[in-house]
Design a protein around this nucleic acid. Structure first.
Lengths: 186, 186
DNA sequence: GCAAATTAATGATTTATTCAAG
DNA sequence: CTTGAATAAATCATTAATTTGC
């Protein structure tokens, strides 16, 4: 098969790390311009499209919320169990309740307040200065999909780690060595 | 205000009629290329963007289904009322139940089988020959948003009812000038 | 050890719900 | 009160982990 036969985007470790960092910093529903920037920068590490970034945040946000929901539920369940000595009902099968969980803690974690450079687990430096326009606490409703309208100048791809200077913001040279799997079960 | 200050698309009667006709003919979730065509053609009757078409079908489909749901419910309700003489509960306030209504009749109504030209209420003729590739009964999964990725060459507007020939396809040469951020409140 | 078979993660799409302009 | 627009939830589908039988 041709090398470009993969149907879905497969994020590189670097891309993933950056996305997660952004998320950690509070990015939840980036708007057009932000997605443009993010995409452009991530494209340095591999083939990527705007919609990938868009979907990633959608999914990550949703699944984070879902995780919190479950946690809450199982916590309630625990209490319930303690109260009633019912050891059943543990294996809750997701999407049980739908609303009433919208104001959960754990978002807008704008801790991690380094100045614009963050050290990853491997000790490498990443310039995040280009993320200056993070949503403060954006209550304003913002065009969501419109980025799709105006951007996506084709699958932005500059070949992973090629000598292109990437002058826009200079994301530093990451080494792929230490980038694997720093999220799970930490 | 500038003439282009209206925030949301206001479909002209002609546009609406065409959209409805398409819907009646079975178009439910047009894909990129279809939306391109539709938009191009509707732009003949007024300012319009691809996303407008996209949203219109989304909403129309959803609300049609909703209507059917209500109808069903009220029908059931009627039965219920007949059985129990409860005359309340009539003014169902939407979104009451969420699932279990997914296989309702009333879609894919490919009746209305005129040949390619339809007369509107005012007696005008509309050429629908360009809609040849309607989804037969498309079971194939089709990229939904990707149209956003590739199209929307700016608010397609050719001014209502101008002498432009409107030949069926040929989307004109894209100029990069159309790709610059024409969203924000200009 | 290693592939076929299962399962878990997660990218991508669709549907439902909500917001707000007119 | 209708409906365009936007967001969130649910669902589908493919890739990666993993288990399992040989």
């Amino acid at each position: 098969m041709s090398p470009s036969s993969s149907t879905r985007w497969c994020p590189t470790p670097e891309q993933l790390m950056i996305l997660e960092e952004l998320y950690r910093r509070g990015v939840r529903t980036p708007k057009a311009s932000q997605i443009q920037k993010i995409t452009a920068h991530l494209s340095y590490y591999g083939k990527i499209q705007g919609k990938n970034v868009f979907y990633w945040f959608q999914n990550h946000k949703a699944r984070d919320r879902q995780k919190l929901r479950k946690k809450l539920i199982s916590k309630q369940q625990q209490t319930f169990d303690l109260d009633h000595q019912h050891a059943h009902y543990n294996n809750l099968d997701s999407h049980i309740m739908s609303s009433a969980f919208h104001q959960l803690p754990g978002y807008n974690s704008a801790e991690n307040n380094h100045e614009g450079v963050v050290k990853d687990t491997g000790g490498h430096m990443i310039d995040y200065s280009w993320t200056s326009d993070l949503p403060k606490d954006c209550l304003i409703r913002q065009c969501p999909h419109d980025f799709m309208m105006i951007m996506d100048l084709g699958p932005t791809f500059h070949c992973c780690r090629n000598p292109r200077p990437l002058q826009t913001l200079e994301l530093f040279p990451i080494r792929p060595s230490n980038l694997i799997d720093q999220e799970t079960t930490s």
